[in-house]
Design a binder for these strands. Structure first.
Length: 598
RNA sequence: GGAUCCGUAGCUCAGUUGGAUAGAGCACUUGGCUUCGAACCAAGGGGCCGGGGGUUCGAGUCCCUCCGGAUCCGCCA
């Protein structure tokens, strides 16, 4: 009887995807209802709270009262007294300390949230308001052709992919752009060597290694022989003038490179919408020189065309070089052309440049220049942001290299991750058939690499340690994937489909401490997503998923799911199903694949 | 020389426009599998948040200064 009443109540309560937003608007309207003089100035500052204090807390009253020389505690009391009745139905509200307002969700509210979000479709509806009607370009990976991707390329690819997925889930139209370096000065020497020294066997076997070898041949030969250097320069001039033969070689090098890159992207589950490299903007730089010169932004200096920023402490003397002394374009030229193209062609709200933080000077100069350029030409500048990230370091605290000092190839790194994962799977799950073990290892190996990268604040340098990465413990991919596999296992044993909507019909309200702790964590998915998206830092979502998996493990250990009592069993299955949904959704948003058995 | 970022437990790291007693993991100690996957869980010790000064109801967070580290600074990207 009690259970039935609670069930009806839960159904009647309206719950939003993001409960913090409900409390925010409730407090704002309470400020008006309470007759605050400048009620609209109150920013409630609702955030997820330490569980000791409740589920959410509002800190904004403190600042509001301080600015007006009011007693913060009394202000909070007035505000709480004026809260809409609906808030009282969903949670307990208390005032603590100098004027913190604490919200503790009632079990029925938790239950209602779980019922209201049975599938990814409902999560998407809730999440997709944040970036609705916006178009974002995510510029990431961006390797140079004719070279292999090395460990330095990992972070851009992994972080960029996660951000692209997070923005898309938040309702934005996302254009994933691989801004490949396909137009460098290296092509002169490369083409020179390609015409003379190409090993076709090697080309078909290991094309990138062959290109790298050819470049080295071209480079060393040109260094030794000035005549060769002139020939190589001539090859570059011919290419840039559109010589059919050189253009064909250039195209072949790029096509083969992209196909090789794609094998890495497949492993990482990355798919670009466009790959508009530097060559694409080759014919679009003259307009840049012209416009910036006409506007007086660009001036000649030491033979080059450059932009100074006189008001800036550093860029008044450190120019942005947009055309080299020899008349050729560089990456500043193409980057400016790229901004214009993204503005005109994609009508972009903004563009995110997922690039090493060592290039922050370049982007500061670039964005400052674009800002003045767009303002002077009466255009609206999209939001441009450099998504910087730190260097991958080895255990010696220096940039990660092989023992012989070479860059570690990304392909080798992923292969090694897979091998280590296979050793682990074979040790822990010897009963799984070898073929499936290999499949699991492929997934776990790559996921571990991705997750290790994403789980740390991207701006910090990142210490690469195999043992930490492939480890099963702590904040690692394997720990999260294990939780996913274990939940699948429960449903498999019981012969129930976790996505079936009828799980909760017999459920009674949550009771045990572990059930409630888990449910309280589940409803905060939206807040973790929000942190990750607004700050463009995936590690907030990683941390949440890790804590969620931890709360699930605690629940799993304390409360048996497959019990006789149908009501208890139903509500625990509901918790399992939602934990599974959020873990899988969250991991997929980070770019990871999940599995059912490991 | 100029500039940017960083310094939190033995190690690796979180700490969201300044908020409540600074949090995790690893390592260490102890306990838990005849019961849904122990690749798990529970409990414990461990901190002048680099030093000093300032701003205020409140500072790991903001300002100043010193010490230590990383990175960038004209035609590579």
């Amino acid at each position: 009887m009690r259970a039935a009443r609670a069930f009806r109540f839960a159904r009647a309560v309206h719950v939003s995807f993001n409960l913090a937003l409900d409390f925010d608007s409730a407090l704002r309207s309470a400020a008006t209802a309470a007759g605050f003089a400048d009620a609209e100035a109150l920013n409630p500052e609702v955030r997820v709270s330490d569980p000791r204090h409740g589920d959410y807390q509002a800190n904004g009253v403190l600042g509001y009262a301080k600015a007006r020389k009011l007693n913060p505690r009394a202000t909070a009391e007035k505000l709480v007294a004026a809260l809409p009745a609906s808030v009282r139905e969903t949670c307990d509200v208390t005032i603590a300390g100098p004027g913190f307002i604490n919200f503790t969700l009632k079990p029925a509210t938790l239950f209602a949230w779980l019922r209201a979000h049975p599938s990814i479709a409902q999560l998407r509806v809730g999440a997709a308001t944040a970036k609705r009607d916006q178009t974002w370009i995510v510029d990431y990976s961006s390797p140079n052709t004719a070279k292999q991707m090395h460990v330095g390329h990992l972070r851009s690819a992994v972080i960029g992919e996660a951000l692209a997925r997070l923005l898309a889930f938040s309702g934005a139209k996302v254009v994933r752009d691989n801004h490949i370096g396909d137009w460098g000065t290296q092509f002169g020497k490369l083409i020179w060597a390609y015409k003379r020294q190409l090993n076709t066997d090697a080309l078909s076997r290991e094309p990138l290694e062959e290109f790298e070898r050819l470049y080295k041949v071209g480079n060393s030969t040109a260094e030794a022989d000035p005549a060769v250097l002139d020939e190589a320069r001539a090859e570059l001039v011919k290419l840039q003038a559109g010589d059919p033969e050189n253009l064909a070689i250039w195209k072949k090098i790029n096509d083969v490179s992209l196909a090789a890159f794609q094998r890495i992207y497949d492993q990482l589950d990355i798919r670009f919408d466009v790959a508009l490299g530097e060559s694409f903007y080759n014919d679009k730089t003259d307009q840049i020189y012209r416009e910036l010169s006409d506007l007086g932004l660009a001036v000649e200096s030491e033979g080059a065309l450059v932009v100074f920023h006189p008001e800036h402490p550093r860029f008044k003397e450190q120019p942005l070089i947009i055309r080299k002394r020899d008349g050729a374009a560089n990456y500043a030229s193409t980057d400016l052309a790229t901004i214009l193209y993204r503005f005109e062609h994609f009508k972009a709200t903004g563009a995110l440049y997922v690039v090493d933080k060592r290039q922050s000077d370049h982007f500061d100069q670039l964005f400052l220049t674009a800002q003045k350029w767009f303002a002077a030409s009466h255009r609206t500048l999209p939001h441009l942001e450099h998504i910087d990230f730190g260097t991958v370091l080895g255990e010696d605290n220096k940039p990660l290299k092989t023992r012989s000092g070479e860059n570690i190839k990304l392909r080798d790194l992923l292969t090694e991750a897979e091998a280590r994962a296979l050793a682990l799977v074979s040790e822990r799950s010897p009963d799984i058939p070898a073929e499936e073990r290999a499949e699991i290892a492929r997934l776990v190996g790559v996921a571990s690499v991705q997750y290790a990268d994403l789980s740390q604040n991207r701006s910090s340098d990142y210490l690469f340690a195999w043992d930490k990465m492939i480890s099963l413990e702590g904040n690692t991919a394997a720990y999260l994937l294990y939780a996913v596999a274990r939940i699948h296992s429960i449903f498999r044993k019981l012969g129930i489909d976790p996505t079936a909507g009828e799980l909760d019909t017999a459920a009674t309200p949550l009771e045990t401490a572990e059930e409630l702790t888990l449910a309280r964590k589940l409803v905060k998915f939206s807040n973790a997503l929000d942190s990750a998206v607004t700050q463009l830092r995936p590690h907030f979502l990683c941390l949440y998923l890790y804590e969620l998996a931890g709360d699930f493990s605690g629940f799993y250990n304390a409360d048996k799911v497959a019990v006789e009592d149908p009501a208890i069993r139903a509500r625990r299955l509901l918790l399992c199903a939602r934990t599974l949904l959020l873990l899988e959704t969250g991991l997929n948003l980070l770019g990871l694949r999940t599995l059912r058995r490991m």
